[in-house]
Amino acid sequence: MTSCHIAEEHIQKVAIFGGTHGNELTGVFLVKHWLENGAEIQRTGLEVKPFITNPRAVKKCTRYIDCDLNRIFDLENLGKKMSEDLPYEVRRAQEINHLFGPKDSEDSYDIIFDLHNTTSNMGCTLILEDSRNNFLIQMFHYIKTSLAPLPCYVYLIEHPSLKYATTRSIAKYPVGIEVGPQPQGVLRADILDQMRKMIKHALDFIHHFNEGKEFPPCAIEVYKIIEKVDYPRDENGEIAAIIHPNLQDQDWKPLHPGDPMFLTLDGKTIPLGGDCTVYPVFVNEAAYYEKKEAFAKTTKLTLNAKSIRCCLH
């Protein structure tokens, strides 16, 4: 018999989150649709729960009410004593943790798909938090293969000092899905179709896995975050240069030392320094102006996964 890495157990509980950011409308629209008619997301033997994560922000069509829901799922915020004085999103995070967690427990949901849009030209993107997770690498390989020839990129946010504390991190297997470009507060049919297909293929993978299909060893190309880059700023902290036209919409493309990065209003080009080629992502993302992030630098690498098969009882 072929030796293989056996994944822990079959997958039982899956959640699909929309509206973690209330103005990213593809996930909101799909989740609302699936709450009314969820036939397309159901798979035999699998509990799939669509869920609106930040209903107040969705109602106002804004990213958040008090603070970013997708950055506060750490033990400090989840452990705060519940009171009306807490920011709305912290209270909501505790409610979500109660419903789908608790985080880092045996009772937490197996998989959470968190649906997002970006204003950046990132196409279909899967966000991975753990480079050693054979199950998710296999799932992402399946999704990428199923979507081809449509490109699907994998963004690895594993980093020693950049801690995200994402909404989906309460699950055993957290999956971020990011599709763009799409303006905030807008629905685009092409973007919706791409996100819908990503979810379909992900659920198909889980179904095949649960039925005992063995997935042979595989490898995927990923883009691992190195650092986030702020806009150049003046002495008052105001933005002093904008994304250069040569960099705009060039997510995932190589940016070499000396290539144009920013452009000042008086026409001066600010190039990339250093001696390493990087791959920019979230270029000129609207939501990241407040976070002082013009783009993120990534490096390209390959992740390998062992063969996996479900432990059938």
Rank of each mutant, 00 (worst) to 15 (best):
K224T: 06
T26H: 02
F51H: 15
Q182Y: 02
L247H: 02
I6K: 09
G212W: 01
H207L: 15
G123I: 02
L162N: 12
G45Q: 09
P102N: 12
V31K: 00
E238G: 15
E238N: 14
P174R: 13
S131D: 13
L30T: 00
P280N: 00
R196G: 03
Q42H: 11
A165S: 13
V179T: 05
E129Q: 15
E47C: 06
A305W: 00
L128Q: 03
I226A: 07
D110M: 02
T26Q: 02
T298D: 00
I127G: 04
S3W: 13
I199C: 07
P151E: 13
F100K: 05
L128C: 04
A57Y: 05
P260D: 08
D275N: 06
D204G: 01
T277I: 07
K306D: 13
Q42E: 09
E76T: 08
M139L: 10
N70P: 08
A202W: 03
I270A: 04
P216H: 05
E293Q: 09
A287F: 12
E76A: 11
Y155L: 08
F205R: 00
S131E: 06
N54I: 04
Y88K: 07
Q248L: 08
N117R: 03
L312A: 11
K60E: 13
R91P: 11
L247A: 02
D251T: 02
T44K: 10
I143G: 00
G237C: 05
T44F: 15
G18K: 02
Y223G: 03
K49W: 12
Y289R: 12
G274L: 03
H256P: 04
D190V: 12
I6L: 15
G185W: 03
V283N: 01
L136A: 04
G212C: 05
D275E: 13
C4I: 14
E84W: 15
D234I: 04
P181T: 01
P174I: 07
L35P: 00
H313Y: 10
K228N: 13
A240M: 13
Y288E: 11
G185D: 03
K306A: 14
K103Y: 13
K224S: 09
A202V: 03
L156W: 14
C311D: 14
T264A: 07
M139T: 01
G274S: 09
E9L: 14
F140L: 08
Y289S: 14
I270S: 03
P232S: 00
D190W: 03
F17Q: 05
E129L: 05
Y223D: 01
V229R: 03
K306Q: 08
S120R: 03
L69G: 06
L86H: 07
Q248G: 00
K228C: 11
N284C: 05
G45S: 12
D249V: 01
T145D: 12
D68N: 07
T302E: 11
A240C: 08
W252Y: 07
R168M: 15
P102G: 13
I143M: 06
I96M: 11
G273D: 13
I143T: 02
F51N: 02
C311T: 08
N70M: 14
D259V: 03
A287D: 14
L247D: 00
Q42L: 09
I6S: 11
Y223M: 05
L303W: 01
I41M: 04
A7S: 07
P149Y: 04
L136F: 02
D249A: 02
C67H: 11
V283Q: 00
E9P: 15
F205W: 05
W34C: 02
Q138G: 00
E235G: 08
D259K: 05
K103M: 15
E8M: 09
D266T: 08
D204H: 02
E290W: 09
T44I: 11
M195N: 04
I226M: 12
D68G: 07
E290Y: 08
T145L: 14
S146W: 07
D190M: 04
T118H: 04
A7L: 13
T167S: 12
H33Y: 09
S131K: 07
L187R: 01
R132I: 05
P217F: 04
N210S: 05
H244K: 00
F295W: 06
L162Y: 15
K292M: 08
Q184I: 12
A287C: 10
A7M: 13
L126C: 05
T26K: 01
L312N: 08
P55N: 12
K197C: 12
V179Q: 01
A287W: 14
T2F: 08
E106N: 13
S108Y: 11
P232F: 03
Y142P: 00
L99G: 08
C124R: 05
K228D: 08
L272P: 00
F205V: 00
V14I: 13
I6Q: 10
I137C: 05
V278W: 08
V229T: 08
E89L: 04
V175T: 00
I206F: 01
A165E: 12
F140R: 00
R56Y: 14
Y153R: 13
L203A: 02
V175K: 01
I65P: 06
Q42F: 10
C61H: 11
D107A: 15
K200C: 14
E235H: 12
I170H: 10
P280C: 04
C276L: 10
N210D: 04
F295A: 00
V48S: 04
H208P: 00
D190E: 06
A305E: 01
E36T: 10
Y153W: 13
Q182S: 10
N284H: 03
L203G: 00
Q184C: 07
D193S: 15
I225A: 10
L187N: 09
G176C: 12
G180D: 00
I157H: 10
E227A: 06
